[in-house]
Design a protein around this nucleic acid. Structure first.
Length: 414
RNA sequence: GGACAGUUGGGUGAGUUGGCUGAAACCACAUCCCUGCUAAGGAUGCGUACUCGUAAGGGUACCGAGAGUUCGAAUCUCUCACUGUCCGCCA
């Protein structure tokens, strides 16, 4: 959630920043008014309550002293009705504010380029030269069929479209990648954790998936529980509503989890192959830091994801997302895109974001800074998306006969 | 799933004949003092959120969540959630 006090105080600056994300002035003006309205409503309500408390105290005194309480009771009863009305107004104001505030995206950082979509993102650098083929490289689904690695039909039979089954070497490679990723992350100082794949609504609101993006989540019927769309949710919310000690920070976490997404709004995109699935494996990094540490940790996370790709010998590039392509919670994001020779283009394989205090405010994660409680910064990034890495290996390591070479670093994991 | 018990501040844990308790005590933590030597003694401070105020200092709310009774509830009533123990079931 954005800082409403900041919005009120520095309204012009906030509108200018949020215009990068396509939020118009009117929406922000409305939010500001709702905030001011709530404060006013609360002020009058609290005044009435204070009066009520004073009279209640007197009430007890009078009774003890045996004084007549008839007049006081009349006053108190009258005030009670006033409070009920004011309370209703305040509740209404609160709800109206929350509805708008929780749907407001994070402020982008200064350095985020202006732009509306993918096309306006800025390439920062390329790592590793794509190899040249002396034959026409195939796309991963063709390779999958040749090698019997992915069973798309049976995946659909078991569940529905956008589900698939990995078989034999592919299944082993998937597992090898998970272990490899976790090991590298652990080397870099991330604590490995194993978390629930089902989280409750409060957690999803904490990281920003709810209330606005519930359509993209698989919900458990009859319960306020959801399959996680990313390990970012349980990892970040591990410290939901907690106050940490400054010396605990930074907290670096990594976890392997499957991820579940409805992919609402992606109808028709990447329908062929395994790029976009309802269920996919991912190893995620999450960091909780002080505001001072977060830029440095952000770099660490980007470099780590890039390092993993380099160790796998996968050509990739780093892309700074423009305002329009930035996620809801992110203040800045660098995507890592891996080269897919079969598709002849770079495709997203990791996304590292700094949400600053946006999620921390929602999830109430603070740390003691002297006597003060300060919101932490939360960061998240994939290291890496496992299925897409598998695809990248298939396409980059394919041979003329359709066979696939296993990258050296993975040999000991197979 | 059945039976009983519980849910208080960072921790342990008082408080359940409704007002003097936002909450004792102890521990932990912070600052200071004493002492001198590795183990202790003393003082003070120490929940969260919002809000008013330059500040000092006020106000409101919160004792699992929600609703109710009452002038007034951590304390009474109801609903729900969670935890523990026993039983059943099970990887």
């Amino acid at each position: 959630m954005i800082d409403l006090k900041y919005l009120q105080k520095s309204f012009d600056e906030a509108t200018q920043k949020l215009s990068k994300k396509g939020v118009d002035n009117e929406t922000l003006e409305n939010l500001k008014q709702l905030f001011i309205g709530l404060k006013e409503a609360n002020a009058t309500l609290e005044e009435a309550k204070a009066e009520q408390n004073r009279m209640s105290k007197l009430f007890g005194q009078y009774k003890q002293e045996g004084k007549d309480i008839g007049e006081l009771k009349a006053k108190v009863d009258a005030n009670k009705e006033v409070i009920a009305v004011l309370q209703a107004k305040a509740n209404e104001a609160e709800e109206a504010l929350q509805n708008v505030a929780l749907a407001m995206p994070n402020l982008p950082d200064e350095r985020v380029p202006v732009g509306t979509d993918e096309a306006d993102n800025i390439e920062l650098k390329k790592v590793l030269e794509p190899r040249t083929f002396d034959f026409e490289p195939l796309e991963h689904w063709a390779l999958a069929e040749k090698n019997g690695w992915i069973d798309f039909e049976r995946g659909v039979k078991l569940a529905k479209s956008r589900f698939s089954v990995l078989r034999g070497e592919a299944a082993r490679l998937e597992r090898a990648l998970i272990n490899f990723f976790l090991d590298v992350n652990r080397e870099k100082g991330f604590e490995e954790v194993c978390v629930p794949y089902i989280n409750n609504a409060a957690m999803l609101q904490g990281t920003g998936q709810l209330p606005k993006f519930g359509d993209d989540l698989f919900k458990i019927e009859e319960e306020e529980l959801y399959l996680i769309p990313t390990a970012e949710v349980p990892l970040t919310n591990l410290y939901h509503d907690e106050i940490l000690n400054e010396n605990q920070l930074p907290i670096l976490l990594t976890a392997y989890t499957p991820c579940f997404r409805k992919e609402a709004g992606s109808a028709g995109r990447d329908t062929r192959g395994m790029i976009r699935q309802h269920q996919f494996d991912k190893v995620e990094m999450v960091a909780l830091t002080t505001p001072e540490q977060s830029d440095q940790i952000f770099e660490l996370m980007v470099e780590n994801a890039s390092d993993i790709l380099t160790r796998l010998g996968l050509p990739h590039r780093l892309v700074e997302l423009c305002g329009g392509d930035l996620g809801f919670s992110a203040a800045c994001t660098i995507d890592l895109e891996v080269w897919l020779p079969g598709q002849n283009k770079y495709r997203e394989i990791s996304s590292v974001s700094n949400t600053r205090e946006f999620q921390a405010r929602r999830a109430k994660i603070r740390f003691k800074e002297g006597k003060k409680n300060t919101l932490v910064h939360t960061l998240n990034g994939s290291a890496l998306a496992v299925g897409r890495t598998l695809i990248a290996i298939m396409e980059n390591y394919q041979n003329a006969d359709g066979s696939i070479t296993i990258p050296k670093v993975l040999e000991k994991y197979m």
